[in-house]
Amino acid sequence: MKFKLAAAILAAGLPLASMAFAQDTAQSTAPADLAVIDACLKKVEKTGGFGSACVGLVADPCIKAAEGANDDVARWKACAARELAVWTQKTSEALKKVQAGGFADAIKAVNDSQKTFAASRDRLCAVFDNVDPGMYRGGASYCRLRETANRSLSLIKLGAAVNEH
């Protein structure tokens, strides 16, 4: 009975959760970028850490390599978009794991918050395109990467917690 209920909730809830990230999936995830983040997250999982040290592992070296080019800002944004694609995928995976846990209150809370997350994140991050590009390299794109990564890390922890059986 619990399995059928969880499956029904999962089927009903996934479209809502995935809609919030539809705009982020335009950039496909590069396997090498995903491997870098996955390797870091596996190390963090062993130590029980949160994973914040894994944020920027793709974008930061890419941004550093792009410094000095004529179109630094455009390249910085492209670097951030590469890693954002990874964290968007990680978020989708984490959402599925939370839903698979079968805890109705957790599923409802996550689905409700996902409905507004992308819009809230994008409103905040738009401000970073209006500051000196050197202050936050990649502007709104890098902000979206960081906000999505932090969200993903929280959902990964929640997914692990609700699936401990």
Rank of each mutant, 00 (worst) to 15 (best):
C40N: 04
C54A: 12
V86N: 02
A74C: 08
I107E: 03
V110R: 00
E67R: 08
A69L: 06
G49Q: 09
W76N: 01
L95G: 04
L41K: 00
C62D: 09
K108E: 10
G51K: 06
F103T: 07
A100G: 05
K42L: 06
E67A: 12
D38S: 11
G68I: 15
A69G: 13
P61I: 11
K97H: 06
A39P: 03
G49A: 14
Q99A: 15
W87H: 10
E45Y: 05
Q89L: 14
F50W: 04
D105E: 15
Q99K: 03
W76P: 01
K90S: 03
E67F: 07
K46P: 03
P31T: 09
G56E: 09
K97R: 12
A106T: 13
G68S: 15
V58H: 01
V36K: 12
T88A: 11
N70V: 14
K64F: 11
V86S: 05
R82F: 02
K77E: 12
L84R: 02
A109S: 14
A59V: 06
G51Q: 11
I107Y: 03
V36Y: 00
Q99F: 15
A85G: 04
K43L: 10
T47Q: 11
K77T: 09
W87N: 07
C62W: 01
S52M: 14
G56H: 05
A106C: 11
G102N: 06
G51R: 02
V36E: 11
K42H: 09
K46V: 12
D71Y: 12
K43W: 05
L84C: 06
A59Q: 06
K97Y: 01
C40A: 11
K77G: 10
D72T: 13
A78T: 14
L34A: 01
A109H: 05
A65I: 04
T88P: 01
V36F: 04
V58W: 05
K43V: 10
A78L: 12
C40Y: 05
D60V: 14
Q89N: 13
D60P: 05
L95Q: 08
V86T: 11
A35Y: 00
A85Q: 00
V86P: 01
A69Y: 09
E83I: 04
K108G: 04
K108S: 10
A109Q: 10
A100I: 00
E45I: 06
F103I: 13
A59H: 03
K96E: 14
V98K: 01
G102H: 02
F103P: 00
K43P: 01
A35G: 01
R82S: 03
L95M: 13
K90G: 03
V73Y: 07
V98S: 01
G68N: 14
G56Y: 04
E45D: 13
A35S: 08
K42W: 02
D72C: 10
K42A: 14
G48K: 12
P61R: 07
D33I: 08
V110F: 00
D33T: 08
A78G: 13
S52G: 15
E83A: 01
D72M: 15
Q89H: 12
E45W: 02
V110G: 00
A69S: 14
D33Q: 07
G102E: 03
